[in-house]
Simulated assay, not measured.
Amino acid sequence: MSGHDVRARRWPLRLMRTAAVLVLLDTLAQAALAGLFVTGDLDLLTWHSANADVLTALTFVQTAAAALVWRRLGGPLWPAAASLVLAVLVGVQQGLGETRVLAGHVPLGMGIFGLATALACWAWTFTASPRPAGLPRRAPVEVTE
């Protein structure tokens, strides 16, 4: 397999890295919008609410990208599962925000930021070597005594 073929097959990892950075940056933007709203700029609550929809969409893109890294590149399953958990948490976060349950909304936002950071760090440190088409994900392990 040529170097170009290997790079061409790594597109799921490039997608994961891009999505993870966008999720992290948008999570930071959410925190900034919330902070500015608290300082008295009431118009930013509308921006904060609208941006929550963007963050939700980005977390689903990240989940799909992490699943592709797992399936196509033989990466670990946990980033796909963690990305799905992140998408669910962002949905819960939206619900808490819309109902003004700030006692849950603010701490959950901190957790979301932490998980988004962990996934972005993983995406940029993971290295993949795509397996040739037709090979199974993992070879069976034979135990001999």
Rank of each mutant, 00 (worst) to 15 (best):
M1R: 09
H4M: 13
H4L: 15
R7N: 07
R7F: 10
A8W: 08
R10V: 06
P12F: 00
L13Q: 06
R14T: 09
R14M: 05
T18G: 04
A19H: 08
L22T: 09
V23C: 03
L42S: 14
L44A: 02
T46Q: 12
W47Q: 13
A52L: 12
L55F: 01
A57L: 12
T59V: 04
F60S: 05
F60C: 02
V61M: 07
T63S: 11
T63F: 06
A65D: 10
A67I: 00
V69C: 15
W70E: 15
W70G: 00
W70C: 07
L73D: 07
W78F: 12
W78Q: 14
W78P: 02
P79K: 01
A80L: 07
S83V: 04
L86A: 01
G91A: 03
G95R: 10
L96R: 07
G97W: 05
V101F: 12
L102C: 00
H105C: 05
P107L: 09
P107I: 07
I112M: 05
G114I: 09
T117V: 10
W122Q: 04
A123M: 01
T125C: 08
T127P: 00
P130A: 05
R131N: 06
P132Y: 07
L135F: 13
R137Q: 14
V141M: 10
E142S: 11
V143P: 03
